[in-house]
């Protein structure tokens, strides 16, 4: 019974942890959207900023990955 309760807690916790990925999604969408807005204003400068776009997306995504990691750890490692 106690073990099942712990299992329940783990699953609920893992599910809650994945909510963090939504934040990463918002962040990535924000970066991509702003990049597109800027690129449409000044299309000639856009290709030179592609690297910065990817780096920004990667950094925003990293924080979501932590919550993903927490979810995985809860599911499989704890």
């Amino acid at each position: 019974m106690e073990g099942e309760l712990a299992l329940l807690g783990k699953y609920i916790g893992a599910g809650l942890a994945t909510i963090g990925l939504g934040g990463a999604g918002i962040g990535v969408g924000h970066i991509a959207g702003n990049f597109l807005a800027g690129a449409l204003r000044n299309p000639s400068a856009a290709p030179s900023q592609m690297a910065n776009l990817f780096v920004g997306i990667a950094f925003a995504e990293a924080l979501g990955i932590f919550s993903f990691l927490v979810a995985l750890l809860l599911m499989f490692a704890v």
């Binding site: 990293a62 932590f66 990691l69 995985l72």
Partner: peptide, 17 residues
């Protein structure tokens, strides 16, 4: 110090998912 963690989990996590 978190860099290697995010660096590796980003790649592995994306592929695995």
């Amino acid at each position: 110090f978190v860099r290697p963690l995010s660096h590796s989990i980003r790649l592995g996590g994306n592929l695995m998912a």
